[in-house]
Amino acid sequence: MSEFYNNKDEQKISNLIADLKKLPKVEAPENFEFNLMTRIQNENFGQAEEVRPRFNLLKFLAPSAAVLATVVLFFIFYPQQQDIQTQIAEKQSITDTPSIAGNSADKNVESLFSVPQKSTSPEVKSQRPSNIQSVEQNYKPAKQTIEFNPRKSVSVDDYISGANTSPNSGTRNSVVNVGERAIADGFFVEKKADQKTIEKYRHELDSLKKALLKADSLKKARK
């Protein structure tokens, strides 16, 4: 049955093809050639003539100049933006927790005093013990921009001559406070605070607080 249908379909298609072949042939109008040759002689090519766009230097340069300007601006502003961001970050780290270049004991002291400093009044500041003031005087702000990691960088001349026995002795004892950006190459030596020093300064703080209370009570009494 399906074969019958297939044959039927094929028959229909073959009829269609036969009819398509039998379609009357359309011929060009009589004046076709005359018109064509007239057009050619008059060079009236109309749409057939390819209109090739002339090379326009301005049109060519305008987009390329725009691209070039964008690239240049990008290279000018992008590194500056980065610098600004790093500077802001560094400044923030400095204002939040100042680091002390020196021995670890001084650092611990500074970290201890960093909190009470904010709460105390100017009057209290003047009453600080001399050893605390000396600590404040010894305070040195951290370097703002460190282009090269001193632990990684090696003086080539020293390295060749053999003088560079230790990587960098100057930064060996530097300890970074909380919140400060540290340059670490995979190792970070954490130096714990000396318990005795902490206790010592805690006592000093307590006595200072007591002295302040006494001073306040004396002022009230005078009034």
Partner: peptide, 27 residues
């Protein structure tokens, strides 16, 4: 000209447009 006319006419179905297209082809 005639085979192209026939082809274009059967494709477009418009005699005037077909003449123009064949003229353009020849140009």
């Amino acid at each position: 000209k005639d085979p192209l006319m026939n082809f274009v006419y059967r494709f477009l179905g418009d005699r005037d447009a077909c003449t123009d297209v064949v003229q353009e082809t020849m140009i």
